[in-house]
């Protein structure tokens, strides 16, 4: 009896946790004009509407390109830093690490406002460089963390062996370190892609009428219309996330990659 009760509680909590993500799937096939449960019928009309919505489609393209750019920039910038921070002990290392990962801890709304004020002065609002910089702000801490973990779990001695055999530092990195770190790089890429693709608060402050991202476009859409169109976008996003989670799980294990 007690065990059964325990089981019910656990099941209910799981349902609570997953309900909003799972329910957008049936909702996205609604045939109604408004968010009504249960839907009076099922259809693909909102997927068709989505394909015809130029604003959301452009925003989706922007978000995709931006996420790829952020991924590439994060790996290129964070990799050297992670190598130094994971391997060398020097004075001020802890402080440096704290400054570099602080953007993850501070309230995003504060970061967003700080960026807005700087960006306005330089005309960076609604521009690609502006958005890239803003996303790097939140992506780099993740990149540094994940890559540092990846560096510290490299098998010891392999690199030393290579250099003692006469390989130059760059070629050691290229031939030995980088291949060994590929799972870590893949994990960084996947996490940073999702962080950038889902980022909404900071984006909301720095986008403009001619350049906007998908989460911002969705937020604005939900503010002015409540129909199942956003459910269709959400369903696609959930599937995309699932795909990336699977990649992540394959590459390093999700929990390890996310462990802070």
């Amino acid at each position: 009896m007690k065990r059964a009760l325990h089981g019910v509680v656990i099941a209910a909590l799981f349902l609570f946790l997953l309900a909003p993500v799972l329910l957008v799937l049936p909702m996205s096939f609604s045939a109604d004009r408004y968010l009504v449960w249960p839907p009076s019928g099922f259809s693909l009309r909102w997927y068709v509407a989505l394909a015809q919505d130029a604003g959301l489609m452009a925003a989706a393209r922007n978000s995709f390109v931006l996420a790829l750019l952020v991924c590439a920039a994060t790996v290129v910038l964070a990799m050297p830093a992670a190598l130094v921070l994971a391997r060398q002990r020097f004075r001020g290392r802890e402080a440096l690490l704290a400054v570099l990962t602080a953007p993850l801890l501070l309230p995003t709304i504060v970061l967003a406002l700080a960026l807005l004020i700087i960006f306005v002065g330089y005309g960076l609002i609604g521009s690609w460089p502006g958005l890239l910089l803003a996303h790097l702000l939140v992506a780099l801490p993740y990149g540094i963390r994940v890559l540092m973990t990846s560096v510290s779990t490299l098998p010891a001695g392999v690199e030393e062996a290579a250099s003692s055999l006469g390989a130059a530092p760059w070629s050691v990195f290229q031939r030995v370190t980088l291949p060994l770190m590929l799972p870590g790089v893949a994990a960084t890429g996947a996490i940073v892609f999702l962080v950038s693709f889902d980022e909404v608060v900071i984006s909301l402050f720095v986008v403009g009428p001619q350049l906007t991202t998908l989460p911002v476009a969705m937020f604005r859409y939900v503010e002015s219309r409540t129909d199942p169109l956003v459910a269709a976008v959400s369903a696609l996003l959930v599937l995309l996330t699932l795909a990336i989670v699977l990649i992540l799980e394959r590459a390093v294990g999700l929990t390890r990659a996310l462990g802070r």
Binding site: A19, V21, L194, V200, P215, M218, S234, V238, T241
Partner: peptide, 11 residues
């Protein structure tokens, strides 16, 4: 955690 807060709020 990896699904946007906008999507989950909409849910």
């Amino acid at each position: 955690l990896l699904v946007s807060a906008v999507v989950r709020t909409y849910g």
